[in-house]
Design a protein around this nucleic acid. Structure first.
Length: 983
DNA sequence: AAGTCTTCGTA
DNA sequence: GTACGAAGACTTC
């Protein structure tokens, strides 16, 4: 290889058999920056990690065997010239939300250009065009000339260019991307990639796409219809209404997206492709640069390959110094993220403003996730190193992998940790070979014995000086509790998101990652499969397990960096610390306790219900004159309104006959026999399928109890929700329903204690709306519904007809729900006009409540949220919707949220206080369940007398000292052998 | 096998 | 009129 200096750019036409390499420089820089450990020039701390990675890659492509197995005849590094391109004229939001590059990356862009020149390689950039468009154009020209093309990049936007003779090479993963890989990723071949992308959109580049359509659905649609235009033209044929409407509504948005993602293959090039021919490496020039960068290893390699005496070459003095670039050299991301003692660059820059550090940190947290850097920890020494670094850092993201989604049955399979964005590991502990589950091969070799690993992790996980960060910690808390580990202190990114953004989208990790990091993590389903084909996590191969698990910890840590600062900035830190975070161990302990159910009661009921339902079914079919599926609303509607021609038939939104309870009740009142029997049949089958049959299947085989799962971040108002099984909707209204409650029992020698708030939401209405008459009524312990009726209708409370009181009660509930004449009319089975008149009269008597409702709407419109008594925010982004019914719905929800949410806050405060208070009093009762305004405990018989007043007192005083209400809270508490009698 | 619609249980 | 979750029927793949 000649070392001659060739200043004039040579040129050699591209012809058949040539091989053109096009390097996507810009995206390579970003990836190298995040994938590689932060590296600073020793002499002055100039960040050079991305430059080093880039130089190594380029050297390898030029001089050594690469993955493609050929040496380039033509080669260019293609860069983005500026942020604004023709795409911004199509769509002004294109790439709009893309964050600024991190501070310690910025000075490296210029260095990369210097590097390209030092390598004597063509460096291409062109105003108004992205690197991708230039690559597309060169690629087309090369193919037309009969040459092969290798695009060195991993950006999915370039995959549309793949065709015979054109492949992509991801040097960081050492992977070639061809037609098959594209099909694997997009579900369609390269030539259809743009069609799929224009439907699915791209959150990273802010390509809108069509809402509700992801890559999977898009691929399937394109597969079926061929291309975007055909699909849009025939969108009306699509069966699924949601999908059809989305495609029709957002057709133009999809067309815009199509233009955004389609690369321009006809850019008027400033530099002809012939000029990209590979030029000889000038050893001395390159070494001058590498020495200036202080890349000693690469300098040595280049020297020996080019035969230049390295010692005789001086570093290039023109290569920028940190100071000359006018850049502060901030801490590498890994350091900025930790509470570790300031070292290196941080120590050298004491004047660096905290917000600059925060910006650098946020930049790192938002940087692309690279799964290839995660470590699989297989030795106790490596584990000790990770634990020690976590302890030194004082902060670590943690995630557990297990054999089950049910934390009460899940066995630990592995633990992942993240110390800084991109710096994460997975510690497999109980992975097995890929067996059939019956013939287990035993543990996979090489894993650290679980006891040894937990012995290393436990001190760190319980260290008061190390903040553990998790997403949905309650799950991991429950799992680790069963291994004798109690995590503390901790933060939960799901709960931080919830307290900040309740009502503004979901709080699971995948949606949060999309929203805040613009990154799509590997999904659990992708790793384990789903449905019948699902495998347990212990059968996931270690490389896939590491990519998935370490990424979860990595993403969790990045989310924490993105969200935690908002708590203070937005004034939500107290709400998080008092209403959210302390609930994790409280709920975990409740779930772990579970509740005992009496199987024999349920199985007897099941039999009874089945028999009665069968009898009813026979009568129903007799009355109908033909056999049909009574459980099918479709068939039932045909019988009632078609065959029998009953009056009052209305259609549902989808055009089917409506056969809901209220319609059947109306018919029953008119004297028809069949509808009542249907109602009875429905009740019996409902109770049987949902409760008496289903509940026993939730019995935990080890504990012989039922362990529900509470969701802390599921509702907009702050309420909990319960699932698997839902123990917040156990029947209570009818006698048949109450029999089910009798199956919830205390264990021998104990009682169930139920303590519930009496009319808490109405009391909060009186408090928040500040209605003196209502406040006084509660203070005096009056019958609030009777009083309302008396005020409205002028009837004395004494001897009031029950129907009058019933109507007033419905109005009171209506107020809490953000009353409408329509709703009240439905509830009371009266006309809209009459209901409207009631409401008018109510507001005349209680004008303060109308003012409260108007004020709530105004506040919600102004801020986009309402606030509870304790500072929780409930967001209603559609409060100002143009559509009147959507707007009215949001207004009612906002009115309700202040009350429902304040009540939810109060019971949360009580729940946090109960366990310590019981313990302080030497009582051993355990809290088992929460049903919005009710707490259920299991208490030794001889402690019941002491527990009842203690619990009631804590609940009644729960608002204090944060709020001192002018209305008393009233709690009724009772003990019995089963839930029905205690309630 | 998975997703949507309808219905119904609770506060 | 608010807030939820679960089940069966039905549709779609």
């Amino acid at each position: 290889m000649s070392d001659a200096t060739l200043n004039a750019a040579p040129s050699r036409p591209v012809r058949k058999g040539d091989h053109v390499f096009l390097i996507d420089g810009s995206s390579y820089i970003f990836r190298a920056y995040h994938a590689l450990p932060p590296l600073s020039r020793k002499s002055d701390g100039l960040p050079v990690g991305a430059v080093a990675g880039f130089c190594n890659m380029l050297w390898k492509l030029l001089r050594e065997a690469n993955e493609v197995g050929v040496k380039p005849t033509h080669l260019a590094v293609v860069l983005d010239h500026s942020a604004t391109t023709f795409r911004n004229t199509i769509y002004d939001l294109y790439k709009a939300q893309r964050p600024e590059p991190p501070e310690d990356l910025r000075p490296q862009f210029k260095l990369i250009r210097d590097a390209v020149h030092a390598f004597n390689v063509a460096c291409i950039e062109q105003e108004g065009f992205e690197a991708d468009d230039l690559i597309a154009t060169y690629s087309r020209q090369a193919v037309e000339a009969g040459a092969d093309v290798t695009i060195v990049a991993s950006d999915k936007d370039l995959m549309q260019l793949i065709r015979p003779g054109v492949i992509m090479l991801d040097t960081m993963k050492g992977k070639i991307i061809g037609r098959d890989e594209v099909i694997e990723k997009f579900g369609v071949p390269p030539e259809k990639v743009v069609d799929v992308q224009s439907l699915a959109g791209d959150s990273v580049d802010n390509v809108p796409g069509v809402p509700g359509i992801g890559v999977k659905t898009a691929a399937q649609l394109i597969e079926e219809y061929g291309d975007l235009e055909t699909l849009l033209a025939r969108a009306g044929e699509i069966k699924q209404p949601k999908r059809r409407e989305a495609l029709q509504t957002f057709a133009d948005q999809a067309r815009i997206s199509y233009r955004l993602v389609t690369l321009d293959q006809n850019v008027p090039l400033d530099t002809a492709i012939d000029a990209l021919c590979v030029r000889p490496t000038e050893g001395e020039r390159l070494i001058r640069f590498l020495k200036a960068m202080e890349f000693t290893t690469l300098t040595g390699r280049v020297a020996s390959a080019t035969g230049v005496e390295s010692a005789s070459v001086e570093p290039d003095p023109s290569i920028a110094s940190a100071r000359a670039l006018g850049e502060t050299a901030p801490a590498p991301a890994a350091m900025a993220d930790t509470a570790a003692p300031a070292t290196g660059a941080v120590a050298a820059l004491p004047e660096l403003h905290p917000s600059a550090l925060a910006a650098a940190r946020l930049g790192a947290a938002r940087a692309p996730v690279d799964r290839s850097t995660y470590e699989t920890v297989l030795s106790i020494d490596r584990l000790r190193d990770w634990a020690a670094r976590a302890t030194a850092a004082g902060i670590v993201a943690v995630d557990t992998e297990t054999t089950s989604l049910d934390p009460m049955q899940a066995d630990l399979v592995g633990v992942s940790l993240a110390l800084a964005p991109g710096e994460a590991c997975y510690i497999p502990l109980a992975h097995r070979g890929e067996g059939d589950g019956l013939f287990t091969e035993g543990l996979l070799a090489g894993q650290i014995p679980i006891r040894d690993a937990l012995a290393v992790l436990k001190p760190m996980l319980e260290d008061r000086g190390v903040l553990k960060i998790a997403q949905n910690l309650k799950y991991d808390w429950l799992v680790l509790a069963r291994y004798g580990i109690e995590i503390a202190p901790y933060d939960d990114t799901m709960l931080i998101s919830y307290v900040l953004d309740a009502g503004r989208g979901a709080h699971g990790m995948d949606p949060l990652s999309e929203k805040w990091l613009g990154h799509t993590p590997i999904t659990f389903d992708e790793v384990t499969g789903k449905g019948k084909a699902r495998i347990t996590f212990d059968r996931v191969p270690l490389d896939r397990a590491t990519a998935y698990a370490a990424e979860d910890a990595d993403v969790t840590l990045r989310l924490w960096h993105a969200l935690k600062p908002r708590l203070v900035a937005e004034g939500m830190a107290t709400a998080y610390e008092t209403l959210e975070r302390p609930m994790v161990p409280v709920l975990a302990q409740m779930e772990r306790a579970g509740i005992s159910i009496d199987r024999s009661i349920l199985s007897r009921l099941s039999g009874d219900f089945a028999q009665s339902a069968a009898a009813l079914e026979a009568e129903i079919q007799e009355l109908a004159g033909q056999p049909f599926n009574v459980g099918s609303p479709k068939q039932l509607g045909d019988i009632l309104f078609g065959v029998m021609g009953l009056p009052g038939g209305t259609k549902t939104a989808t055009g089917a006959w409506a056969t809901g309870a209220s319609i059947l009740e109306d018919l029953a009142e008119q004297g028809y026999e069949l509808p009542q029997k249907i109602l009875d049949w429905r009740q019996l089958t409902k109770l049987r399928s949902t409760y008496t049959d289903a509940l026993p299947s939730y019995l935990n085989p080890e504990t012989k109890r039922v362990h529900t799962s509470y969701a802390l971040a599921a509702t907009t108002t702050g309420r909990l929700s319960s699932s698997e099984p839902n123990l917040q909707n156990i029947p209570v209204r009818t006698e048949a329903g109450r029999q089910i409650r009798r199956a919830f029992v205390a264990e021998a020698g104990k009682k169930l204690v139920s303590a519930d708030y009496s009319q808490i939401e109405l009391r909060l209405l009186a408090e928040i709306a500040d209605i003196p008459a209502l406040r006084k009524a509660f203070r005096d312990g009056l019958d609030i519904h009777a009083l309302t009726a008396s005020e409205m209708f002028g009837v004395p409370v004494e001897g009031m007809p029950s129907e009058i009181r019933r109507r007033a009660k419905a109005i009171n509930f209506g107020i809490i729900y953000g009353i409408s004449a329509f709703g009240l009319a439905n509830q009371l089975s009266i006309g809209r006009e009459e209901a409207g008149a009631y409401i008018k009269r109510y507001f005349e008597r209680f004008p303060g409540i109308r003012d409260y409702m108007e004020e709530t709407k105004r506040i919600c419109r102004e801020h986009g949220y309402v606030t509870t008594l304790f500072g929780r925010r409930c967001h209603y982004p559609d409060i100002a919707a143009k559509n009147p019914s959507i707007r009215a719905f949001n207004e009612r929800a906002a009115i309700n949220a202040r009350l429902q949410g304040s009540a939810a806050d109060i019971i949360r405060r009580a729940m946090v206080r109960v366990a310590p208070a019981l313990q302080a009093s030497g009582l051993s009762g355990r809290m088992l369940l929460q049903v919005h305004d009710e707490l259920i405990f299991e208490v030794p018989e001889d402690e019941v007398a002491a527990t009842l007043p203690l619990v009631a007192g804590i609940m009644e005083r729960a608002p204090e000292p944060a709020a001192r209400l002018n209305v008393p809270l009233k709690v009724d508490a009772r003990a019995a052998d089963n839930w029905d009698e205690a309630h």
